[in-house]
Amino acid sequence: NITNLCPFDEVFNATRFASVYAWNRKRISNCVADYSVLYNFAPFFAFKCYGVSPTKLNDLCFTNVYADSFVIRGNEVSQIAPGQTGNIADYNYKLPDDFTGCVIAWNSNKLDSKVGGNYNYLYRLFRKSNLKPFERDISTEIYQAGNKPCNGVAGFNCYFPLRSYGFRPTYGVGHQPYRVVVLSFELLHAPATVCGPKKST
């Protein structure tokens, strides 16, 4: 009989979020998941679920829940969905086509923008091939755009693969920082350890 609540607040209220190319993952297990707390949290810009209804989450049990978190621009949030393409979905964070879970995003301009620009948040701009679902690539190898080998030196046709967002408070909404948490639900042939409040007695 599990009684402790799942530590969703640790994920959602973290002081610093990860850059999207180096997205953070927390495994959540052996706890009671009260999703209504999240669902009623006012400032969400997006709360979209795939393969599961957000209002039914509290009735369900899962083997594991993974909480992935990172920061992207407002106009990139739409790429955090199954079957998407674009710089983020291709080179930074890719969801599987059969994704079961929820994508939760909110504007973090007050936290993550600075006058003069916040350059701490990076994304991958160049990559030889697209990421596989949930693949994480933190390499900083110089990207070779031409035929000539770069030998690890940036220059003509040789690019550092990461780019900084440089968030400023005055940017338009599409270019403002958004914090994103992706909850993915794993249902294995194993005992369920993460259940909603109704199922955990």
Results as ranks from 00 to 15, higher is better:
Lys128Asn: 10
Asn87Ala: 14
Lys114Gln: 00
Thr170Lys: 00
Lys56Asp: 01
Gly166Val: 13
Phe45Asp: 01
Ala14Ser: 01
Ala18His: 07
Phe44Leu: 11
Ala154Leu: 04
Pro149Cys: 06
Thr85Gly: 07
Thr140Glu: 06
Ile2Phe: 04
Gly155Val: 00
Lys199Trp: 11
Ser69Thr: 01
Ser36Asn: 12
Lys132Leu: 00
Lys148Met: 09
Asn64Val: 04
Tyr121Asn: 00
Asp97Gly: 05
Gly196Ala: 15
Tyr119Ala: 14
Ser184His: 04
Leu187Tyr: 07
Ile28Phe: 12
Thr3Leu: 03
Gly152Lys: 01
Asn64Glu: 12
Pro149Glu: 15
Ser200Glu: 04
Ala154Thr: 12
Asn120Arg: 03
Gly174Asn: 15
Gly116Ser: 04
Thr170Tyr: 05
Ser184Ile: 15
His189Tyr: 12
Asn130Met: 02
Gln144Asn: 08
Gly174Glu: 09
Phe134Gln: 06
Tyr21Phe: 13
Lys114Thr: 00
Ser78Ala: 05
Ile104Phe: 14
Ser129Arg: 06
Pro149Asp: 04
Leu188His: 07
Asp9Val: 06
Gln84Glu: 08
Pro54Val: 08
Phe134His: 12
Leu38Phe: 10
Ile142Met: 15
Val153Leu: 12
Phe41Lys: 11
Asp59Gln: 07
Ser29Arg: 15
Ala145Lys: 11
Arg27His: 11
Asn40Lys: 01
Tyr121Phe: 03
Gln144Asp: 04
Ser139Cys: 01
Gly174Gln: 04
Val37His: 14
Arg163Asp: 04
Leu187Thr: 15
Pro149Met: 01
Ala190Lys: 08
Phe160Thr: 07
Phe134Asn: 03
His175Asp: 11
Asn64Ile: 10
Gly152Asn: 11
Leu122Ala: 12
Thr85Ile: 11
Asn24Gln: 00
Leu5Met: 15
Arg73Gln: 02
Lys48Asn: 15
Gly152Ile: 02
Asn130Arg: 12
Val115Leu: 11
Pro197Asp: 11
Phe160Asn: 04
Ile142Tyr: 10
Ala67Ile: 03
Ala190Trp: 05
Ser184Gly: 04
Ser113Cys: 08
Lys56Ser: 07
Asn1His: 01
Tyr35Pro: 07
Asp90Gln: 02
Ser29Lys: 12
Ser108Ala: 08
Pro43Glu: 05
Val37Phe: 02
Tyr143Ile: 04
Gly117Gln: 00
Leu188Lys: 15
Asp9Tyr: 03
Phe41Asp: 11
Gln79Glu: 11
Tyr119Asp: 12
Gly166Cys: 06
Leu162Phe: 01
Lys128Phe: 08
Asn24Asp: 14
Ser184Gln: 02
Asn87Lys: 12
Asp59Gly: 02
Asn87Val: 12
Lys198Asp: 04
Ala33Tyr: 04
Pro149His: 06
Asn130Ile: 07
Asn107Ser: 02
Thr3Lys: 01
Leu183Ile: 02
Gly174Lys: 08
Thr100Cys: 01
Phe45Gln: 10
Val32Ala: 15
Arg168His: 11
Ser78Val: 12
Arg73Ala: 14
Pro149Tyr: 06
Asn1Gln: 09
Gly155Lys: 02
Lys128Gly: 07
Lys128Asp: 12
Lys114Asn: 00
Lys198Leu: 04
Ile2Thr: 03
Asp97Ser: 06
Lys56Cys: 01
Asn118Asp: 06
Ser129Ile: 04
Ile138Thr: 08
Tyr39His: 10
Glu135Ser: 03
Arg163Met: 11
Val77Met: 05
Phe45Asn: 06
Asn24Ser: 02
Lys114Ser: 00
Glu10Ala: 07
Thr55Ser: 14
Leu5Lys: 03
Glu186Trp: 01
Asp98Gly: 06
Tyr171Met: 04
Pro54Arg: 13
Pro54Glu: 08
Asn64Ser: 10
Asn64Lys: 02
Pro191Tyr: 07
Ser129Phe: 12
Leu122Val: 03
Thr193Ile: 13
Asn4Leu: 01
Gly196Glu: 04
Asn109Leu: 03
Asn118Pro: 00
Ala192Phe: 06
Arg163Thr: 14
Leu125Gln: 14
Phe126Gln: 04
Phe134Ala: 15
Phe44Gly: 12
Gln84Arg: 02
Lys132Asp: 12
Gly155Asp: 03
Leu125Ser: 03
Asn24Ala: 15
Thr140Gly: 06
Tyr178Trp: 14
Gly174Trp: 14
Gly155Glu: 06
Asn147Arg: 10
Leu188Ile: 08
Phe41Leu: 09
Tyr91His: 07
Glu10Arg: 02
Ser200Leu: 09
Lys48Glu: 14
Asp9Phe: 04
Tyr50Trp: 02
Lys128Glu: 13
Pro149Lys: 11
Ser36Glu: 11
His175Phe: 14
Asn40Arg: 06
Gly174Cys: 11
Gly174Val: 05
Asn30Gly: 10
Arg127Lys: 09
Gly152Ser: 06
Thr170His: 02
Gly166Tyr: 12
Tyr143Met: 06
Ala18Asn: 05
Ala154Asn: 07
Ala22Asn: 03
Asn147Lys: 11
Lys148Gly: 06
Thr140His: 12
Arg136Lys: 03
Gly174Arg: 09
Lys114Cys: 00
Gly83Ser: 05
Ile138Trp: 11
Asp9Ala: 02
Ala192Gly: 12
Leu188Arg: 12
Val52Leu: 01
Ile2Glu: 12
Asn4Asp: 15
Leu111His: 15
Ile138Gly: 10
Pro7Arg: 02
Lys148Val: 09
Val11Leu: 03
Thr63Met: 09
Thr193Glu: 15
Val77Leu: 12
Asn4Gly: 02
Pro7Ala: 13
Thr140Met: 06
Leu187Phe: 04
Gln144Thr: 04
Glu141Gly: 10
Ala154Met: 11
Ser78Met: 08
Asn107Glu: 01
Thr193Lys: 11
Val173Tyr: 08
Val52Phe: 08
Gly117Val: 00
Lys128Tyr: 00
Lys199His: 10
Ser29Thr: 10
Thr140Asn: 00
Leu187Met: 09
Pro54Ala: 04
Ile138Leu: 04
Lys114Arg: 14
Phe126Cys: 11
Ala14Lys: 11
Ala67Leu: 00
Lys128Gln: 07
Leu60Arg: 03
Gly174Tyr: 10
Lys199Asn: 02
Ser200Ala: 01
Gly152Ala: 01
Ser78Cys: 11
Tyr39Ile: 07
Pro161Asn: 05
Ala42Lys: 03
Asn151Arg: 02
Asn75His: 00
Val77Ile: 05
Ala190Pro: 09
Asn64His: 12
Asn64Cys: 03
Lys148Thr: 11
Ser19Asn: 02
Asn58Gly: 05
Ala42Met: 06
His189Gln: 14
Asn120Phe: 02
Gly155His: 15
Val194Phe: 06
Tyr143Thr: 04
Phe41Tyr: 12
Ala33Ile: 09
Lys94His: 01
Tyr143Val: 12
Ile104Leu: 06
Asp98Glu: 06
Phe134Ser: 05
Asn40Gly: 02
